[in-house]
Nucleic acid binder design. Structure first.
Length: 258
DNA sequence: ATGCCCTTGCCTCAAGGA
C-alpha cells in the first residue's frame, strides 16, 4: 500500500486548470493539496478533476486566498480554518482546510504573506500561525499531514541569497520560531529530512527572470506526524511544472509514502 | 525607492503577492 501526496500553490485554479489537470494525470497523486485557488467555493472548476477520480473539497471566497484538498478516497470529515470548525466562518479568510481519511488528517494551508515586518499583516501572520499550532496539537495523535504554502523559509539554507533578504518577511526570526513551534508538536519537515543539503526551492518570483537565475525560496512544505513521516520514501520538487507555459510561480512538492 | 511579472475585479488602474 503506497500513497502519493502533493501540495501546490497554483496561483488561481481558473488560470491554471488545464495545467493542473494535465499534471494530476501525469503525476497521479492520491491526495493533492492546493492553495491560492482565488475563486469562490461554488465556482471551483471541479468537473475535469472529478472525471480523473478525485473528490474535490474546496473553500474559497473570491479573488483572494482559497484552499482545496483533492482525494481519491472519500473524505470522512471536513474542517475549516485554523480552529478546525465544522463549517466555514464568515469572519475567517479561507486559508486552512482539512479532511480526514483512513490514514489521518490531511490539511492544506495558505499562511498569510506578512507583506513587511512593520505591516499589520505581519502580526496577523504570526497570530495565524499561533492559532494553527494551538488547534493542531489535538490532531497530531490521530496522524496528520499539513502541507502548503507556509510563506516562511525555515532557514538561510532555504533561500538563494540570505543577504538579499535582510529585513524582509519570510526569513525573520519570529516567523521561523512560529514554524519551529509547529515542528515542536512532533511534526517533521519531510523534504528537509530526506534532503539535508539540497536547496529544494519551490517558489521563484515571476519578475527579473528569477527562475532562470536560480533566485528561489523553499516556502512550500509538507509537515507530517511521526507515524506518517516514518513511511516517507521520496520527496521531490517537480521543477518541470515551473517550466511550463503560463506557470504558477510555485512548483509542486511531491511526497511518496510506503 | 521602485519596477521588474501575474491575477483578479468592473477594470484601462489598484491591490496583492513574496
Amino acid at each position: 500500500m503506497t500513497m502519493r501526496l502533493a501540495t501546490w500553490n497554483v496561483n488561481s485554479i481558473r488560470a491554471r486548470i488545464e495545467l493542473v489537470v494535465a499534471w494530476a494525470e501525469r503525476v497521479a497523486p492520491d491526495v493533492l493539496l492546493l492553495q491560492e485557488t482565488k475563486v469562490a467555493t461554488d465556482q471551483f472548476p471541479a468537473d475535469s478533476l472529478v472525471s480523473l477520480g478525485y473528490h474535490v473539497t474546496h473553500w474559497g471566497t473570491g479573488a483572494w486566498n482559497g484552499v482545496a484538498v483533492l482525494t481519491r478516497e472519500a473524505p470522512r470529515e471536513v474542517r475549516y480554518g485554523t480552529g478546525f470548525a465544522r463549517a466555514p466562518l464568515a469572519t475567517e479568510e479561507p486559508r486552512a482546510l482539512a479532511v480526514r481519511l483512513e490514514a489521518g488528517w490531511f490539511m492544506s494551508v495558505y499562511v498569510p504573506n506578512g507583506r513587511a515586518l512593520d505591516d499589520p499583516h505581519y502580526v496577523y501572520k504570526l497570530t495565524w500561525l499561533a492559532e494553527l499550532r494551538a488547534h493542531l496539537a489535538d490532531l497530531v495523535a490521530d496522524g496528520v499531514v499539513v502541507g502548503g504554502d507556509f510563506n516562511v523559509a525555515p532557514s538561510d539554507h532555504d533561500v538563494w541569497d540570505p543577504s538579499a533578504l535582510e529585513g524582509a518577511t519570510h526569513v525573520s526570526l519570529p516567523e521561523r520560531r512560529a514554524l519551529d513551534a509547529l515542528l515542536g508538536l512532533g511534526l517533521t519537515d519531510v523534504y528537509r529530512a530526506l534532503h539535508p543539503d539540497d536547496p529544494g526551492f519551490t517558489w521563484w518570483d515571476y519578475r527579473q527572470g528569477a527562475f532562470r537565475r536560480g533566485m528561489g525560496m523553499r516556502i512550500d512544505l509538507v509537515l507530517a506526524s511521526e507515524d506518517i513521516a516514518r513511511n516517507v520514501v521520496a520527496v521531490d520538487v517537480d521543477i518541470e511544472a515551473r517550466r511550463a507555459p503560463r506557470p504558477s510561480d510555485h512548483a509542486p512538492l511531491v511526497v511518496d509514502l510506503a
